[in-house]
Design a binder for these strands. Structure first.
Lengths: 112, 112
DNA sequence: TGCAAATATGAATAGATGTTCATATAATAT
DNA sequence: ATATTATATGAACATCTATTCATATTTGCA
C-alpha cells in the first residue's frame, strides 16, 4: 500500500460513506440474501428508489439523496427503465467491507 | 448475516470510526510496513502517543483523543510501560477494512 | 517533596452531516 | 395537453464531530 494525503482523503470519504445507518440499510437491502429469484449466489439484486424506501422505512427523498452519494462513491450503480431507476451494488469491495465490519461487530458483542 | 437495528448501529459506529483522516493516519502509522525490526510479517508494531503525534504531524491532545475513540471501538489496544503508553492495532479486521478500502479507492482512480 | 515527562480530559467552537419539506424534472399514459 | 408516477434537487435546520486550548493526572526521578 502506497499511502499519501490524497489516498487518505479518498479512504476517509469511502469509509464515511459506509458509516451511516440509513446508507447501510440501503446497502443491505441491495445485498438481500433472502432473494429467491435466482439460485446464483452472485445474482445482481436491483431495486428502484421507492421499493428501497418502503423496505427500509425511510422517505423517498432521503433515499434518493443517499443513493446519489452512494453512487458518487462508487458503491452502487443505476439503470434506467421507463420512469423507474434500478439501483444495485457496484462491486465486491462494498460487500467485503460490510462483511468484515459485520464480523468485527459480532466479535465485539462477546465481551460487552 | 443477521441484520437488525442494533447491528446496523454498531456497524455505523465502526465505519464512522474508520472514516476519518486523522484516525486513518494513526492506524497506518501502527501498520507501518516499513518497520524492519522483525522479519515476521505479523510483527506487532507498538508506538507511544507522542511518537504517533510526531509521525503524523498532529498535536498530542488530538492523537490522545482519537486513540481513546479507536480503543473504545476495539481498533487498538494499549500497554503501559512507565510513563509511556504503547498502542498497537487490535485485530485483523482493522487491517482488512483498510486493505479493501484501499483497493476500492485505487480502482476508483482509474476512471476519474 | 518537588520537578519533568507523557498522557488524558473537558469545555468551547467552527464546520460538516443527516433529515425534512417543498418543489422541480422526466417519462408514461389517457 | 394534462395527469400521474417515479425520482431528483435545493434550501433550511438541528445535530454531530474534529480540533484546539488550557489544565489535570500519572509516573519516574532528583
Amino acid at each position: 500500500m502506497y499511502i499519501n494525503e490524497h489516498v487518505i482523503n479518498k479512504m476517509q470519504d469511502t469509509l464515511k460513506l459506509a458509516g451511516d445507518a440509513t446508507r447501510l440499510k440501503i446497502l443491505f437491502c441491495l445485498l438481500d440474501e433472502l432473494d429467491t429469484s435466482s439460485s446464483d449466489p452472485h445474482h445482481l439484486i436491483e431495486k428502484c428508489v421507492n421499493d428501497i424506501a418502503l423496505q427500509i422505512g425511510c422517505s423517498q427523498s432521503l433515499v434518493s439523496h443517499q443513493l446519489k452519494d452512494l453512487k458518487d462513491g462508487d458503491f452502487v450503480k443505476s439503470r434506467k427503465e421507463g420512469t423507474k431507476i434500478y439501483y444495485s451494488l457496484k462491486d465486491e469491495h462494498v460487500k467485503q467491507i460490510m462483511q468484515i465490519t459485520y464480523e468485527h461487530v459480532l466479535e465485539g458483542e462477546h465481551h460487552d
